[in-house]
C-alpha cells in the first residue's frame, strides 16, 4: 500500500473544496452574527437598568462557559423537539455566532472603555444626543481599536467549524470523512483538510498582526 496516493488525492479534492466553501460560508455568516450580537450584548451590559444588565450578563456567561459542541447539539437535537427546526448549516451558523458573540462582546467592551473620557465630555459639551454620541463618536473609535482582536476570533471560529461535522454539515472535515469511509483511505483527505486550514488561517493571522501594528498608535 502506497503511503500517499496522488491520483486519489486529485479524486477527493473537488469534494474537499466544496466542503471548504461550506466552511468559509459558515465562518463568514457566523462572524457577521457574532459581530452584531456581540455589539448588542456589549451595549446591553452598559445600560443603567439592571433588569437588562443582569439577565444579559447571565446568558452571556452561560454561553461562554459551555462548550460549543454541547451548544451545537442542543440547537440541533433539542430545539426541534420544541418545534424549532433549521437546516444543519443554519444551526451551525447560529451556534458559532452565538458562542463567539460572547467573546466579541468582551472585545467591544474593552474597545469602548478605551475611548478617552474626554470624548464623552466633548460630546456632552456639544449637547450631542446619546444615540448620536454612540454612533458618530464612540463606536467608530472603539471598533477601529478592536478590528484585529475581532479578526483573531474569526480565525478561531474558522478552526472550530469542523465541529459542525458533528451535526451533519458537509464542511471540509465531513467531506473528508465521507471520502475516507468510501475508499477506506483517510490519510490524503484528512491531511489535505489540515493543509487547507493552515493555508488560510496562517496568512490571515499574519494579516491581523500587521493590522494590529498599523492601528496600534
Amino acid at each position: 500500500m502506497k503511503t500517499w496516493d496522488w491520483s486519489y488525492t486529485g479524486h477527493v479534492l473537488p469534494d474537499l473544496l466544496r466542503g471548504l466553501l461550506v466552511t468559509l460560508e459558515a465562518t463568514a455568516l457566523g462572524s457577521v452574527l457574532a459581530f452584531l450580537l456581540g455589539l448588542v450584548w456589549a451595549l446591553a451590559l452598559r445600560t443603567p437598568t439592571r433588569w437588562v444588565r443582569w439577565p444579559v450578563g447571565a446568558v452571556v456567561e452561560f454561553i461562554r462557559n459551555t462548550p460549543l459542541l454541547v451548544q451545537l447539539f442542543f440547537l440541533f437535537y433539542v430545539l426541534p423537539t420544541a418545534g424549532i427546526t433549521f437546516s444543519p448549516l443554519t444551526t451551525g451558523v447560529i451556534g458559532l455566532g452565538l458562542h463567539y458573540s460572547t467573546y466579541t462582546a468582551e472585545v467591544y467592551r474593552a474597545g469602548i472603555d478605551g475611548v478617552p473620557v474626554g470624548q464623552w465630555e466633548a460630546a456632552t459639551a456639544l449637547s450631542l444626543p446619546r444615540r448620536r454620541t454612540w454612533i458618530a463618536v464612540i463606536l467608530p473609535q472603539a471598533i477601529r481599536r478592536v478590528v484585529p482582536a475581532l479578526g483573531n476570533y474569526v480565525i478561531a471560529m474558522f478552526k472550530d467549524t469542523p465541529m459542525l461535522a458533528a451535526i451533519t454539515v458537509l464542511d471540509m472535515l465531513k467531506q473528508a470523512e465521507e471520502a475516507g469511509a468510501e475508499s477506506f483511505r483517510y490519510t490524503e483527505p484528512i491531511t489535505v483538510v489540515g493543509l487547507l486550514f493552515v493555508l488560510i488561517a496562517y496568512p490571515t493571522s499574519l494579516l491581523m498582526r500587521a493590522l494590529e501594528r498599523r492601528l496600534g498608535n
Binding site: G118, A125, L128, P129
Partner: peptide, 27 residues
C-alpha cells in the same frame, strides 16, 4: 453653553470640517 477643554478633545475619527459641523447638524 460652549466649552473648550485643556486637552482639545477633538473627535479623531472625523475630519476638521466635520468636527465643527457635527453638532450644528445633529443638535
Amino acid at each position: 453653553i460652549g466649552m473648550v477643554f485643556q486637552q482639545f478633545n477633538l473627535f479623531p475619527n472625523m475630519r476638521v470640517l466635520r468636527n465643527v459641523t457635527e453638532a450644528p447638524v445633529h443638535v
